[in-house]
Simulated scan of single mutants.
Amino acid sequence: MRWQKGRRSDNVVFDDGSGGGGPRFGGGRGLGLGGIVILAILGLVFFKDPTALLNQVDTGGGTAAPATTPANPNDPQVDFVRAILGDTEDEWGQIFAQQGRQYEQPKLTLFSGRVNTACGAATAAVGPFYCPGDRHVYLDLAFFQELQDRFHTTGDFARAYVIAHEVGHHVQNLLGVFDKVDAARRQGATLQGANGLSVRQELQADCLAGVWAHSAEQRNQWLDPGDLEAALNAASQIGDDTLQRESRGEVMPDSFTHGTSAQRVHWFKAGFDSGDMGQCNTFAGPV
């Protein structure tokens, strides 16, 4: 992927690495409803049962995570993140403008180890995630290495997919999807499970990532042979069924939060092949 063509975003910010001195929002409160929603729904990779992650999220008085090294602004990976985020800003800005809307650009916070957000304080174990409370994407660059080592996924476009998925959650937030999901949950709709709201919301973010990828390729012509396959492989490797089979030895559809490998691949391709947000209504009919 010739990502160097991308315009660099000015919206990448850095946590200072202290775990408590980075960006702080919402008065520094502990994990509230927004944080619970993050554990249940948001982020690209929640490899464990969401309740298990509660032990790794600071609820206000926990022990600080070990000291870590903040991201280096001169790291080529930071340049990559800026280029991909910049292109999502350009593409979604254009898509929203075509619909008579204004796209509000999110911030992307690079952190290492632990970070405070409007949704609570989280560790890198949560994986990349989006917090609707402060409209920030959060990413520990060490995840890119995990993507390679644990999930056998390489290539720049696979890493770009990670960022685009989280930006997809931001697009959902701007379109009111989060509010609708929360309203449905309050009325008793099921969050987890193969047909739950969580799976449908995550698959829609995959589709929106595909819409961005389609638009970006049309404008930049930056994909090389094998790039699309790398992104599809990333989507496949992090399906609920694949992860559960790897960690538990069995698949438990009632606990799905992100969708199967086949579903994630299908919805990313639906967005990529069409470039049409209208093809991303994962909340209508079977997924």
Rank of each mutant, 00 (worst) to 15 (best):
residue 138 Y to M: 02
residue 123 T to S: 14
residue 122 A to K: 09
residue 136 H to A: 06
residue 139 L to S: 01
residue 93 G to V: 10
residue 144 F to S: 09
residue 143 F to Y: 15
residue 138 Y to W: 01
residue 137 V to R: 01
residue 98 Q to N: 13
residue 144 F to Q: 05
residue 115 V to A: 03
residue 96 F to Q: 02
residue 122 A to I: 14
residue 124 A to K: 11
residue 143 F to I: 09
residue 137 V to W: 01
residue 120 G to Y: 06
residue 120 G to H: 04
residue 89 E to P: 12
residue 118 A to G: 14
residue 136 H to P: 02
residue 91 E to H: 04
residue 126 V to A: 15
residue 109 T to A: 14
residue 108 L to A: 11
residue 113 G to S: 10
residue 121 A to D: 06
residue 126 V to T: 14
residue 101 R to Q: 14
residue 114 R to E: 15
residue 140 D to C: 08
residue 122 A to F: 15
residue 132 P to Q: 01
residue 102 Q to I: 13
residue 92 W to F: 15
residue 103 Y to H: 09
residue 108 L to Q: 08
residue 109 T to F: 00
residue 140 D to I: 05
residue 116 N to Q: 08
residue 129 F to E: 07
residue 122 A to D: 10
residue 92 W to K: 10
residue 131 C to H: 00
residue 101 R to T: 10
residue 95 I to Q: 13
residue 101 R to Y: 07
residue 108 L to Y: 09
residue 142 A to T: 13
residue 133 G to E: 12
residue 140 D to T: 07
residue 129 F to L: 11
residue 124 A to N: 12
residue 109 T to P: 02
residue 114 R to K: 03
residue 135 R to C: 00
residue 140 D to V: 07
residue 107 K to L: 13
residue 95 I to W: 03
residue 123 T to F: 07
residue 90 D to N: 13
residue 129 F to V: 09
residue 93 G to R: 08
residue 128 P to G: 04
residue 98 Q to M: 11
residue 132 P to E: 08
residue 113 G to N: 07
residue 125 A to M: 14
residue 105 Q to D: 09
residue 104 E to K: 12
residue 128 P to H: 00
residue 127 G to C: 13
residue 136 H to R: 13
residue 120 G to C: 07
residue 126 V to H: 08
residue 106 P to I: 07
residue 115 V to S: 02
residue 126 V to N: 07
residue 120 G to K: 06
residue 100 G to I: 12
residue 95 I to R: 11
residue 90 D to H: 10
residue 119 C to I: 03
residue 104 E to F: 11
residue 139 L to T: 05
residue 100 G to Q: 11
residue 118 A to M: 06
residue 101 R to I: 06
residue 100 G to T: 03
residue 106 P to M: 09
residue 134 D to C: 02
residue 138 Y to I: 00
residue 109 T to L: 09
residue 103 Y to R: 07
residue 140 D to H: 07
residue 90 D to Q: 11
residue 124 A to Q: 11
residue 122 A to P: 05
residue 106 P to Y: 04
residue 89 E to Y: 07
residue 89 E to S: 10
residue 141 L to G: 10
residue 125 A to R: 09
residue 94 Q to F: 12
residue 135 R to S: 06
